[in-house]
Write a protein that binds this DNA or RNA. Sequence first.
DNA 1: CTACTTTTAATCGTGTACGATTTAATCTTA
DNA 2: TAAGATTAAATCGTACACGATTAAAAGTAG
Lengths: 146, 146
Amino acid sequence: MKDFFTLDKQLCFAVYETAGEFTKLYTSALQPFGLTYPQYLVLLALWEKDGVTAKELGERLNLGTGTLTPMISRMISNGWLRKERSKADERKVYIFLEEKARREKEVITQNVGEAIQACSIELEEYEELMELLGKVRFKLKSRVPR
Amino acid sequence: MKDFFTLDKQLCFAVYETAGEFTKLYTSALQPFGLTYPQYLVLLALWEKDGVTAKELGERLNLGTGTLTPMISRMISNGWLRKERSKADERKVYIFLEEKARREKEVITQNVGEAIQACSIELEEYEELMELLGKVRFKLKSRVPR
DNA sequence: CTACTTTTAATCGTGTACGATTTAATCTTA
DNA sequence: TAAGATTAAATCGTACACGATTAAAAGTAG
């Protein structure tokens, strides 16, 4: 790779910038609901499977407690979530969706869906990109840290 | 798209997580130098073209002054950069690489390069992904905000 | 049953991100 | 040239992100 160090050719930068663009897209679609992009990812995860521990949620979102704990607090303050300490094992905290989060699921996802469709990303592109990202992600994840 | 809302099929999530994995990779490669990933991107930009205004740097990195100003301060404290207010137009601040940054360019880029090669991402994958990301990024950028 | 280890969240410190506001310098135009 | 607009950085407030530490609860081995 000749000019590997040319900024605009850097894969890292491309991924970085694309992630930023996605954040902007989602931010504007989610703004009417007072949700941030990471908060939306939390809702996505819980809409799929509600009532999971903070740990499990963190694993599914690739987030540590240092990120998740304060974020969950904010989402509780805003009426999206509810926390419940396990009676059987008091170390565990289960996270549940509040009514508001179930009620607004349709509107939120529809709004986000429209925002994405407005970008007219082809299904083919979508799937190809998903596959490539999956491959690269797998390689990045399974690398042996020195 | 049937189960568009299934978490693991979400493109946004894939981009998000891949960006995170890249960050981790770069973080470990850059740690010996006391550099963060975004700081490395600043160096990449300046190695390509030194002595630019904060504004231009921000445009090239897609970062606002709210992010860049404190980051530049830290990099100045750590001896990577130098700041110089323009004499012709005192609003402008030019950012320059310090000796340290020029001297260590080789070692840093080599270390990062090795870390990436350790992931054995094929050149073909690399280029395909770059192209797809470019396309999607273009679409995301050129969407009309409502 | 007690000392030790492990597990789970919470907390802390540092470093991005970003929109909004502020401040100072420059430009524009009447 | 003086008032108003524009521009460039800096600053502020909020919200991630992550490694490290802490604290409490649960498991485990002698």
